[in-house]
Design a protein around this nucleic acid. Structure first.
Lengths: 84, 84
DNA sequence: AAAGTATTTAGATATTTGTCTAAATAACTA
DNA sequence: TAGTTATTTAGACAAATATCTAAATACTTT
């Protein structure tokens, strides 16, 4: 859970998650949505990946990123145990 | 949401939340559960309070802390929008 | 009023984090 | 194979964070 909370604790990373909610994107496309260097975005993607919140797949010259929502189950149930 | 994610991004603070899930506790009682100085715990309580995850009420010489789960609604719905 | 208990505030410090630029790696194209 | 494009890795640095000790504040008790 530690890496999950850590990954979510950044506005840029949360925005990346929301971008990927709608469609898969490659690193460059993600980068274009932000006023930030590509290496910084790459770093954020790495943190999201370590938290298992996203997956990546090489498509030729590009790397396509997808959201993995299944990991959010843990978070959901953690929250729900608090609420009752 | 920023302060909420920030507050949740710490193992000690998550443990405090779990302690308060079962019963209200004062600062000293919370502190006793951790191998950490009282000022450090006080600091964590402050961050949880700023995030509105806990409330405090003065009871004479003591300060009693309670969990506020209503703030978790926002987090819940944020997660749910991602999952569909 | 003085002493004791509970908690926070202040200030210091080491670690972690987010960002950058430059360089490296990998794949496509001519 | 040389050049171009996509992405990551490496290394540096400023800002944020978690922790500590010492001191301050607030309440209770004698």
């Amino acid at each position: 859970m530690n890496s999950l909370f850590k990954a979510l604790n950044d506005e840029t990373r949360r925005q990346i998650i929301e971008l990927l909610k709608d469609e898969d994107l490659n690193a460059g496309e993600i980068s274009n949505h932000f006023n930030m260097s590509k290496p910084s975005i790459s770093h954020h993607l790495d943190i999201l990946k370590r938290a298992d919140l996203i997956t990546s797949e090489k498509k030729g010259q590009f790397i396509q990123y997808s959201l993995n929502t299944s990991i959010l189950e843990d978070l959901l149930s953690w929250i729900l145990t608090l609420k009752k």
